[in-house]
Amino acid sequence: MVLDELVVAPVTITPTKPLTPTHVKGLLWTDILVKASASLGRVRLLWNNRMATLTTQSTAFWHYLDRIEPDTDWSRESAALIGERYVRFHAEGGKSDPRAVGAYLDRIDESGWIHPASRRVLDSWRAELDLLGVGDLGLGKDRPLAAPAATTLDALAERGLLVDHRRFGGPVHLDGTRWGLPLRQLVGSDGHPNYLLSILRELIPAIGPGRVFLLVFDDGLAADYLLLDRMLTAFGGRSVRLAFSRVPVGGTVRSSRYGGWSGSTLSDLSAVTGSADRAAYRLGMRLYFAGVLPRRSAQPFRMQLLRRCVGRAARMLTRAPADADDRSLVATLSRCRDRSGFVDPYRLTTSLLGPVPAAPELLRMYT
């Protein structure tokens, strides 16, 4: 595969709850992959907040908050408390007035507006990810999606990739039947888009010669991302899908909308008492989430094992050699490179766990 630029496009996270172990796993895998692969070639991380906010998943929750707590000062609330309201919203049925939700969607698309509760969640994420050493995702920035919704729908229709019933007051479906895939709703009868439309609005205009999209997502979205892959191919794009398993908490794999994450959020993990410094925390978290937990691992989250990884990280940093060797770093990264062009975070991270002290330039990438 001729590769001039790798565009890493992870599935975005709706800013409606704290970051759970599954989110942390995906973010750390992405962070290691981007930083390591960038040492060998051109890499760009594609993240746009509007791909997460321009959804009914976010806006229906916002309408719920404005209806039941119109006077709450959200700047004083924690992400965990906002997340508890998100769980309650879904437990109560998770439905809102379509017209009100539509007004929120229009406001986001026109100006990038974000509800104060979600701004508070994003601020919390930024602080936690900065402590963790995750590269800037652009959580504090806003930019329009690369193409308008109407332009993207017209382009899909021109290629025969839509079943469009809007003129009858019905929904719009992506049509992947030519590849043996079922129809997938893209726009509802109420005119509200599915999250897939935002992704297509961002990715289709970015298609170019020598550019490959690396689509990073959790395996619960595998069917949608297979369809996205085929849609990009129909526009002349090339993509590679990288799915990872969710991390069970308390022995159960569940969506964050159902709760069960108390005590294991990123905020909880960073607040655990101990003697490790920031570098050991950053390295230990990567050793656990990218080294102990393989990409398709079904292992449950284990706090005690995470703490052991942080302790091991502290010892690794103490005995690391002082001299750096850029040639050694390139050789290590090259050995861990996938045939699709990216450096495999699991292979790279487990390479740190051998008897030979890790090179300082590689440790710096992890801290």
Score class of each variant (00 low, 15 high):
Val2Phe: 13
Leu3Pro: 06
Leu3Trp: 04
Leu6Glu: 07
Val7Lys: 13
Val7Asp: 05
Ile13Trp: 11
Thr16Val: 14
Pro18Ser: 10
Leu19Glu: 04
Thr22Val: 10
Lys25Glu: 08
Gly26Gln: 01
Trp29Gln: 14
Trp29Asp: 11
Ile32Ala: 09
Leu33Ser: 07
Lys35Pro: 07
Ala36Asn: 08
Ala36Phe: 10
Ser39Asn: 15
Trp47Asn: 11
Leu54Gln: 01
Thr56His: 00
Ala60Asn: 10
Tyr64Ser: 11
Tyr64Ala: 12
Leu65Ser: 04
Ile68His: 09
Glu69Arg: 12
Pro70Phe: 00
Asp71Val: 10
Arg76Trp: 03
Glu77Ile: 12
Glu77Arg: 15
Ile82Glu: 01
Gly83Gln: 03
Tyr86Asp: 02
His90Ile: 01
Glu92Tyr: 00
Gly93Val: 04
Lys95Asp: 09
Asp97Tyr: 01
Pro98Trp: 02
Ala100Asp: 09
Ala103Glu: 14
Asp106Glu: 15
Arg107Gln: 12
Arg107Asn: 08
Ile108Asp: 03
Trp113Ala: 10
His115Val: 02
Pro116Val: 03
Val121Cys: 10
Ala127Gly: 14
Asp130Phe: 07
Leu132Arg: 03
Leu137Lys: 00
Asp142Thr: 08
Asp142His: 04
Ala146Trp: 02
Ala150Cys: 07
Leu153Pro: 08
Asp154Phe: 04
Glu158Asp: 14
Arg159Ala: 03
Gly160Val: 08
Val163Ala: 12
Val163Arg: 10
Asp164Gln: 10
Arg166Ser: 09
Asp175Glu: 08
Asp175Lys: 00
Trp179Tyr: 14
Gly180Arg: 07
Leu186Tyr: 02
Gly191Gln: 00
His192Ser: 09
Tyr195Ser: 07
Leu196Cys: 04
Arg201Ala: 00
Gly210Tyr: 08
Leu215Thr: 03
Gly220Arg: 08
Asp224Pro: 00
Leu227Val: 01
Leu227Trp: 00
Met231Gly: 03
Thr233Leu: 14
Phe235Arg: 01
Ser239Glu: 08
Val240Asn: 07
Val240Gln: 12
Arg246Glu: 07
Val247Pro: 08
Val249Asn: 03
Val253Lys: 11
Arg254Glu: 10
Ser255Ala: 15
Ser256Lys: 13
Gly260Lys: 09
Trp261Ile: 11
Trp261His: 14
Trp261Glu: 13
Gly263Phe: 06
Gly263Trp: 06
Ser264Gly: 07
Ser270Phe: 05
Ala271Leu: 14
Val272Tyr: 13
Thr273Gln: 15
Tyr281Val: 15
Gly291Glu: 08
Val292His: 13
Pro294Val: 06
Arg295Glu: 15
Arg295Thr: 13
Ser297Arg: 06
Ser297Ala: 14
Gln299Ser: 14
Phe301Asp: 11
Leu306Ala: 06
Arg307Ile: 13
Ala313Met: 12
Arg319Thr: 12
Arg319Glu: 13
Arg319Ser: 14
Ala320Arg: 14
Ala324Asp: 12
Leu333Pro: 09
Leu333Gly: 05
Leu333Asn: 04
Cys336Ile: 05
Cys336Trp: 04
Asp338Gly: 04
Ser340Val: 07
Ser340Asp: 12
Phe342Cys: 05
Asp344Glu: 12
Pro345Thr: 02
Thr349Ser: 11
Thr349Arg: 05
Pro355Leu: 13
Pro357Met: 03
Ala358Trp: 09
